[in-house]
Amino acid sequence: MSTAEKKKEFTFGQKGALLLLAICICVFFSVRTGGLFIGGQNIKNILVSASLNGIIGIGMTFVLITGGIDLSVTGNIIMTSLFISQMMVNGIPWILCLLAALLIGTLVGVINGLAVGKFQMVAFVVTMAMNSITTGIGKLYTDGMTLYGFPKNHEIFNKALFGILPGSVLMMAAVAILAAVILKYTDYGRKLYAVGGNSRAAWMSGIRTSTVVTLAYIISGFLCGMGAILMTSKLMSASSTMISGTEMDAIAAAVLGGTSLAGGIGSVTGTILGAITIAMITNGLNLMGVSPFAQEICKGVIIFAVVAIDAIQKRRQAEN
């Protein structure tokens, strides 16, 4: 019995493993860059580059908790960005353009959600198809051109608000707090975990599982709309190649943070921590002047390692 207790002390969960890793990375880069990494401006840079991934990752977390996946986020952001860019270029009132972004993003989420939640289609295929459709519509609509010339206001999301923190970071924080409250304290959050844990049993206990699942994709879509606003604000332009692989980064952030691809497990804090860790790795390696190709390898190895640590811990627990 005492050995069991002792062993328990050594298990700190995936979030703990990630936190430890994040601290190690921090120390490592700080030493290697002579303190440049830990400087105020660089921390700001890291948070800014984590913000888009964090926001999309939170939507992804909701979807992953249901046991699904949303591979349409890249296409959704591109299409939405191009639509609102064209609107801004055409002189439509700025605020309407922002609302349109949220609306278009949400709409894509509604289609994904109904297909997966209501019509029981396979999430992987539905959202993969949706990614292709939305990217294609974006390209067709703009004929592959780059759009620019947005109203000056639009830069606001990339500027430091209230003196210190950039708008995108504040947005990530707001989304994170709201999402964490929803997951932890509302009946919707509880139902989300129930559906992910055992969809059939959840349905049999009177939970409207199709609505719960549909809503998860709608949230992911809505956050893509938000992502489109952030990206266009950051680049002050839009093109069909403005981003790529966003869905993989979002999944990586969520999985690093302990979200299970099998559903039923996941948290906002984990995902945010995951997004920041990924941003730290990219940023630190950049500062050290490591080639971007080597960076990709590094990112992959670290994700692999964190998930491996978690798997080893789970195995040890199962043996006890």
């Binding site: 509880r190 844990g197 055992n198 049993a201 009177g206 939970i207």
Partner: peptide, 29 residues
């Protein structure tokens, strides 16, 4: 196993899974 219990939940959460609406949007813990 298939239709009764929600395996990732505690006994408490399994017990209240049919009454979430009654606990309010912000669950009355």
């Amino acid at each position: 196993k298939d239709e009764g219990i929600i395996g990732n939940f505690t006994a408490a959460r399994n017990m209240t899974s049919a009454m979430l609406e009654q606990l309010g949007f912000f669950l009355d813990r």
